[in-house]
Structure formats: C-alpha cells, structure tokens
Design a protein around this nucleic acid. Structure first.
Lengths: 210, 210
DNA sequence: TAGATTGTTAATCGATTAACAATC
DNA sequence: TAGATTGTTAATCGATTAACAATC
C-alpha cells in the first residue's frame, strides 16, 4: 500500500492515536475524529488530516472503524515488520531498555547488548546477552543490524557512533546527552532529556512565581 | 533579568547550544552564530535569533563572549535555581535516572524515589532512598515538591499522576508509555519513546528499501 | 429528508530563511 | 576604511485552524 508523504510532525502524533484506539478496541467498533481530538486536546480537523494521510477509510456519519484503523496505523508506523537492533551500554538505562517488554509491540527486536565493562559482559538482561565490544562488528554484519541504541555516558558516545556507522548501521537512537555527528543518510534520533527538562523547568518557574 | 518570550521550539534548541559552548569554554573566548549553526547543521540567522532571545550580548565582528553566553543560557534554562523532584517507580529505568549524576548540572535535585514493591523499599539508588508509597504525601508537602517523575509501567501511571497532583505537584515528567491527563496548570511532559521509534522506523524503511 | 461526520479548500499563524542595514 | 558579524525587516514555507462542501 502506498502512503501520502507523512510529515515528521504528523508521524509523532500517530503512536498516541494508536494507543487510544487499542484501548477502545473492545468497547466500540467505530470512533470519530472529534472523539480522538477531544481525548488529546487537539483540533478535530487536524486529527482528520492526520488519519487521512494513513487511512482514508473514514465514513461520514459513522467515523472510522477502530480495528481497521489500528491495522493501518500499525502498518504505517512500521510495527508490522520486525526491526533488529543492538544496544551499546548495559548500565542501568541500557538494562531498563533491554528489559522493556513493550518494544516488541513496536516491531523492535533488541538482539543483544554490548559493553566494555568485563563485569557486565556475560550477564543477561531482559533475556538478552551482554557481549564484549570486540564482537560488535561480527554481530552487526551477520545479523544485518540497521539500528543501534547508545546508552553509554557522553564521553565515548561519538566513538561508538562512528563504529556503529562503520558496521552498516543506518539509524542511531541516542540516549547519551551529547550531540552526535554522522554521515548523511544515517539518522540520529536524540532522546533529548535536557530539552524536556528545560520545558518542565520553565513551566515551574512561571507557574510558581519563583 | 527579563527575557523576551522564548517559544518552546527555541527552548528545545538552547540546551544543545549550551552543551557546545561548555565544550568550547577553554578553547576560545568568543564564538560566532555561524560557527554554532554549522556545528548543528542549522541556519545561522536562526541561531542568532535564538540567542537574541536569551542574551542580546553579541557584538558585530567579534561574536558572542562564550562565558557570558553560558551564564545567560544557564539562567534562561533555569539551571541556576535548584528544582527538587521526586520519582515514582524504582525499577531499572527509575534507578537509571536516580543514578544519573548529570541532573545536578541541570538544576534538578532528585530527593527520593517511591515504589510499591516491598523488596525495593529501603534500598538506595544513586544515593537516594527508595521509600514506600505511603510516605509520598508527607514528603511532597514537607519539601514542597513541584516536579514528579513517573517511571512505572503504564497501567498504574494515571493513578500515580492523580496522586502527585493532589500533593501539589505542578509538572510531571512521564516515562510511562501512556497519555496522562491532568488538570489545567499541571504540565505533562511525555518522554515519547513510541514517537522516536516511529521516526527511526520510517527512516530505516525508506533508506534500506524494505 | 435531516443530521452527523468526513474531507477539501482557503485563511491564519508561527517558524524558518533571505535580504539588507547597522556596527564594531 | 574595509570586512566580519550582528540584528532587523520582509519573504517563504509548513502546520494549524476555519469555513464549507460532500456523503452516508
């Protein structure tokens, strides 16, 4: 199936819609854009446009069929095809991600973690092995890994990123608080903790007056 | 000092500038907007406008004084005044955040964690005590906590959020993959893992052809 | 048919970028 | 003075919202 080009802005809203629809699955067979919009405090035309980019299956008067829409959202978000990924850095955050069962719902399959700390190598987290850094290249090539997750402290992050790129990685999910550089064609998605904190802090200062 | 209204879009870029400036601190005394822009692949006028909202201390020909700009960014981002926060959910992710030393650089002071699991209560993570849920209200009121961090599985998240709000919390940093509802005036900042994954997944599908 | 709801076209709004004037 | 760089004003672009037409 072909999709209209879905902008990044729209794409970021879709998972929330999907989440809501899944919670509605057993309660109603159809849902209107206005209902979804009200649920998230969004404009209803916006929701209709977002859904049109993915589905085009809404019917006047009845709205959208919940189960059909779920399928279309899942397909568009790529939750249907498994993506294999590896993770570098098996500290607390890394192990939290390894243990997170929800990833498989998103089509993500974390196959292994790597760490330079000999004390961690050989352990298991969330059922995934923690391997020595030396094995990184071999595993990435063997399993044709395209996604790498970085959960190490900021200092070594760029070196790890470079190494991942040389292993054929096409996208990096970066949890280290640094800006990483990568060649064109390799996507760096930063989980930007500092930016979130800035928003929170501003709200607190404005709402409490201090 | 008064600031021009800083939009959320701008605010999200400022931490990255600050990070770069800190790395430059010992290397150069001044820096130009074009340099910063090139470093992040941004437009240089955009950087100048962002900085103007915070500083207004740039000088033609010389650029911005690095140390002065660092101070102004820190002030604007609220890294100067300590914000006390509590965390609910001392699992892997919660402990990762508790152990993260970098928060103090952002003016964040995690005072304690709470968990309903008796096995975790009484333990210590990152030097912070894990307390029983019963103590939540008392501590929040006593220390006038305004920020709560939620790192529990999605099912219980709304109930915890409601409880935090009733304790006087004004902002919630939500790591649970659910949409939380809160009264007007209480900010919910979602660390949106599913949205990030959607972006990554789309890039991978488009860049590898499958 | 009347009403609810989708989808489209046009208007608005905000953010980005380009052109240029100001200044050290 | 000439050149580098800031800051401002105007143009462009994309996202949101409003108005309305289409349809079940």
């Amino acid at each position: 199936m072909e999709y209209k080009e879905v902008s990044e802005t729209v794409l970021r809203r879709l998972p929330a819609y999907l989440h809501l629809l899944n919670s509605l699955r057993n309660k109603r067979s159809h849902v209107s854009a206005s209902y979804i919009a009200a649920e998230f405090g969004l404009n209803d035309v916006q929701v209709r446009k977002d859904l049109a980019a993915v589905s085009g299956s809404g019917r006047p008067k009845t709205g959208y069929a919940v189960s059909e829409l779920i399928g279309q959202l899942e397909a568009c978000l790529g939750y249907r095809n498994k993506t294999s990924a590896i993770l570098v850095g098996a500290g607390n955050l890394g192990r939290a991600l390894l243990s997170y069962a929800g990833f498989s719902d998103y089509g993500l399959d974390l196959v292994a973690a790597f760490d330079s700390d000999p004390a961690l190598v050989g352990t298991v987290a969330g059922g995934k092995p923690v391997l020595p850094m030396e094995d990184l290249e071999a595993l990435c090539f063997e399993k044709r890994i395209r996604l790498g997750i970085i959960t190490i402290p900021p200092d070594g992050a760029q070196a790890v990123c470079d190494r991942l790129v040389s292993c054929g990685i096409r996208a990096v999910w970066n949890f280290a608080p640094t800006i990483l550089k990568a060649p064109a064609g390799v996507l760096i998605e930063n989980e930007n903790i500092a930016a979130s904190l800035a928003i929170l802090s501003k709200h607190l200062r404005e709402s409490t007056g201090k």
